[in-house]
């Protein structure tokens, strides 16, 4: 091991010009110490990530019969608001009509609800700008409006105007039956 490190001029190594066995020991010890420090540091960094019990509470079930046509219900999911909107025919029509409009974050209305369930829109209710909760019925596009910095979303929850970069997020969810959805 030493030979391969010492090289052709062991006498130079004494001055620190060439790698010598002593340099090797210094570098190896330094790397080992850094590695050890990083290993010890990681638990202290990772402890701030979501804990096991936080992750375990990650899904909710919801009974859709509670929501009348044209109503929205806001429930809490993973500490955030979740919008469950029972859309009217006019809202759906307006959302589909705008599929071809100039969208900042292009997406068809079809892609934002489950197949055959156009009347149910399930969205994470935090503005994609800085996380405020938009209110329904405000704004220029008949959907949501964020009071914090003025982002306008349409009836499909797509961003149309204001500082937010992306559409309101659609969470992972599934219909367990015709009237029950499971989110998360």
């Amino acid at each position: 091991m030493a030979d391969s490190v010492t090289g052709a001029n062991p006498e130079h190594g004494e001055d620190g010009d060439d790698p010598s066995r002593r340099d090797f020991i210094h570098i190896a010890a330094g790397v080992a110490a850094l590695g050890a420090a990083a290993t010890v540091a990681w638990p202290f960094v990772d402890q701030m990530n979501p804990a096991g019990d936080t992750l375990a509470l990650a899904s909710v079930e919801f009974d859709l019969t509670k929501v009348q046509l044209g109503q929205s219900v806001t429930i809490k999911w993973r500490g955030k608001p979740l919008f469950i909107r029972h859309r009217t025919g006019a809202e759906i029509a307006s959302a589909i009509k705008d599929d071809k409009a100039a969208l900042r974050d292009p997406s068809t209305d079809e892609a934002r609800h489950k197949a055959g369930k156009a009347e149910w829109l399930v969205l994470i209710g935090t503005c994609t700008h800085l996380g405020c909760v938009p209110t329904f019925g405000g704004g220029d596009y008949g959907g949501w409006f964020c009071p914090c910095h003025g982002s306008h979303y349409d009836t499909s929850g797509r961003i149309r105007k204001g500082p937010a970069p992306t559409n309101l997020e659609v969470p992972d969810y599934a219909f367990l039956s015709d009237t029950v959805v499971k989110v998360g």
Partner: peptide
């Protein structure tokens, strides 16, 4: 997420 220690401020 790391700053929050969850999926939202909690």
């Amino acid at each position: 997420t790391w700053l929050w220690g969850g999926f939202a401020v909690d």
